[in-house]
């Protein structure tokens, strides 16, 4: 069997330990594994496309200088998402409450469009704007579940809440957002 001849890839925890022991290559592998997902998370959460790269880089910088903060009760990726979420919240605040996503620059079609049709991209943009306007915990719980399929225990560990509260946040988010796709 080929499976027995292919060595298992090291897990994130092993890579972190290896990096902390001085192996820079392990850090590069962690970046390779997670940076694209972080970009999708940040973009979906409302980061402007031009800002995504910088936000991913800053999130990774914050993560790598504080790796001791990863408690391993949540996955490394969920922990990275929580750091990226904090950064995005700071960015929202820095822009004095104005969402990073520039909805005012777009012509959002009237939902009561006589043709009864919305272009998929318009609906997606509407959803993205809706996600960016959710309260922070709702937004992060929703995206961790929608993007990563994370369970509520995992989400709770990553975001410092309880599984029950995470479930409630998710359902609140879904309730608000699904109005946008009806």
């Amino acid at each position: 069997m080929s499976a027995s001849t292919v060595p298992d890839l090291p897990g994130d925890s092993e890579l972190v330990e290896s990096y902390l022991g001085g192996d820079q290559g392990s850090a590069a592998e962690l970046v390779r594994r997670h940076s694209a997902a972080m970009g999708r998370f940040l973009y979906s959460a409302g980061a402007a496309p031009d800002d995504v790269d910088d936000l991913v880089q800053e999130s990774l910088f914050r993560a790598f200088r504080a790796l001791g903060g990863w408690r391993r009760t949540a996955s490394f990726r969920s922990w990275l998402f929580s750091i990226a979420g904090n950064l995005l919240r700071d960015e929202f605040r820095r822009r004095k409450g104005r969402q990073v996503i520039a909805l005012e620059d777009r012509e959002i079609p009237d939902r009561a469009d006589p043709h009864g049709e919305l272009a998929a991209s318009d609906m997606e943009e509407r959803v993205r704007a809706g996600v960016s306007r959710l309260p922070r915990l709702q937004r992060e719980v929703f995206l961790l579940r929608a993007h990563e399929g994370a369970g509520y225990d995992e989400i709770a560990a990553a975001l410092g809440t309880t599984p029950g509260a995470a479930r409630v946040h998710y359902h609140h988010a879904v309730k608000r957002l699904k109005e946008l796709v009806r």
């Binding site: 970009g39 999708r40 998370f41 940040l42 973009y43 979906s44 496309p49 995504v52 790269d53 998929a120 991209s121 609906m123 997606e124 943009e125 959803v127 993205r128 996600v131 995206l143 929608a146 993007h147 796709v181």
Partner: peptide, 10 residues
């Protein structure tokens, strides 16, 4: 829709 949004990320 959220899945499609993610696919459109830069």
């Amino acid at each position: 829709a959220v899945d499609r949004v993610a696919a459109r990320a830069p």
